[in-house]
């Protein structure tokens, strides 16, 4: 008697599923591309030919920036308090111009902390100067 093996092994890869995988990967790439988006604090620079304002001490908020602390209008504060102090000072004095004098060794990160507080307080124009040119 002759025995026959009649079952067939189907080794084809299901091609119809490939398009689904491709589609899912495209969605993944699109989503991750949004996560890679760059963020920054944006400021408008003054015009080169812009006029210089002459201000009295009562018209602006004076910030002296050091690596360990800040002096805002002669009041020594910590970096963690900057937003609260700036916001309170802006409300109380109605001043919306801040002049930041920075120390020679000030780190960029510290200045970004001041920038974000100024940005958060809103509607404050900022001028930057080195402390030794005060």
């Amino acid at each position: 008697m002759k025995l026959k093996n009649n079952f067939k092994l189907n080794t084809n890869i299901p091609a119809s599923a490939q398009s689904d995988i491709a589609f899912l990967l495209i969605i993944f790439f699109i989503v991750t591309a949004i996560f890679f988006e760059r963020t920054g604090i944006i400021f408008k620079l003054p015009e080169k030919s812009g006029k210089t304002l002459k201000l009295t001490a009562r018209e602006f908020i004076e910030i002296k920036a050091y690596n360990d602390f800040l002096i805002i209008n002669k009041e020594k504060i910590d970096y963690s308090e900057i937003y609260v102090v700036l916001e309170a000072m802006k409300r109380a004095t109605k001043r919306n111009i801040a002049i930041v004098y920075f120390s020679d060794d000030l780190k960029y990160e510290k200045f970004i902390n001041i920038f974000q507080a100024v940005k958060k307080a809103g509607d404050i124009k900022i001028s930057i100067k080195p402390l030794d040119k005060k």
């Binding site: 620079l45 080169k48 780190k107």
Partner: peptide, 24 residues
């Protein structure tokens, strides 16, 4: 050091740049 960034800002002002972004 922020003084380097400050010098770049001054340079950008001289070259009539309008907007500046600090990447964070």
């Amino acid at each position: 050091d922020f003084k380097i960034i400050y010098k770049i800002i001054e340079l950008l002002k001289e070259n009539n740049y309008e907007n500046l972004s600090f990447a964070v």
